[in-house]
Design a protein around this nucleic acid. Structure first.
Length: 274
DNA sequence: CCAGCAGCCTGAAAGC
DNA sequence: TGCTTTCAGGCTGCTG
């Protein structure tokens, strides 16, 4: 499940491959989630950015192609010789969009479970993409710190993990990195009141787990692969997520698993406080 | 406006 | 062995 480190890894790989490339033709899956990919035809990619878990392809006509990878989305760039018209069917059963570049290469979006989404919007106009529209600060920017986190979460009495997953206090944190950051900060994911001091700690652990995720090329549990088709290595560093029943690395008590917002949540009831 | 929740999806794994 | 059920979960859009 791609979160910020996975999307950033893909962004870094695609940027040098695609900057300056013109999209000559497009094919897409018929679903409304993917057919907006067609709108990018004729445009040239001028930059590739990331906001939270969203990948943003800047186009030269004051628009941008917005991509969310959902649970199983992945991008790849494929050499196609001789030049052929783009066809999803040619690339596999789970290909949801193909952008044929003017030089003959194909940018391919695969998404087995179709939780992903593609859109072309006017630059910066995210009014039809609610989560992106209301996205909190980038976690690795200086403007995100304990003070901004505390300011964002103090008004709500929803569980702290629920708030993190909303993308509003901070962007890019999903189920894996939320469990990791809360564990390292010693905060129970169900805590409904997190004061300034604990927010200071949590902001730091969010930054550290995301940085580590990027450094390790992302976390591969099931489906994630980068734009080169390679798995990440960060799954070997996880201390909480997916380790329910295993001993806590700090106190050796078995880690607890609960369901919060329909998501598996793993924590140590001994080390993490409400 | 916000909180809560169903629905979207498929393949791997577990259960019978 | 083979069929059925469960599980993974980010985001959208609906309801109260």
């Amino acid at each position: 499940m791609p979160e910020l480190p996975e999307v950033e890894t893909i962004r870094r790989q695609l940027e040098p491959l695609l900057t300056g490339s013109t999209i000559a033709a497009v094919d897409s899956h018929g679903s409304d989630k993917f057919s907006p990919a067609l709108d990018a035809a004729g445009a040239t990619i001028t930059a590739i950015r990331r906001r939270g878990k969203y990948l943003l392809f800047d186009l030269d006509d004051e628009r941008e192609l917005v991509a969310h990878l959902g649970m199983t989305g992945s991008f790849s760039v494929i050499d196609v010789t001789p030049k052929t018209a783009p066809s999803c069917a040619d690339h596999g059963p789970h290909t949801r969009a193909v952008w044929a570049l003017a030089d003959g290469r194909h940018l391919v979006f695969n998404d087995t479970r179709r939780f992903g989404r593609l859109r072309v919007v006017d630059t910066g106009d995210y009014s039809d993409i609610p989560t992106l529209h209301h996205m909190g600060p980038e976690p690795l920017d200086d403007e995100f710190d304990g003070a901004s986190l505390h300011a964002a979460v103090k008004a709500s009495s929803r569980p702290i993990k629920t708030q993190l997953l909303s993308q509003r206090p901070v962007s890019g944190v999903g189920n894996i990195y939320a469990d990791e950051a809360l564990f390292l900060a010693g905060i129970d994911p169900r805590a409904r009141r997190v004061g300034r001091q604990r927010c200071d700690a949590l902001a730091l652990t969010i930054k550290s787990v995301l940085k580590a995720g990027i450094d390790n090329g992302g976390t591969t549990l099931r489906d994630y692969v980068n734009a080169e088709g390679e798995e990440g290595q960060n799954q070997h560093e996880l201390v909480a997520y997916g380790r329910g029943g295993e001993p806590c690395v700090t106190c050796a008590e078995p880690l607890q698993t609960v369901v919060l917002d329909a998501r598996t949540t793993t924590f140590c009831r001994n080390c993490q406080r409400r």
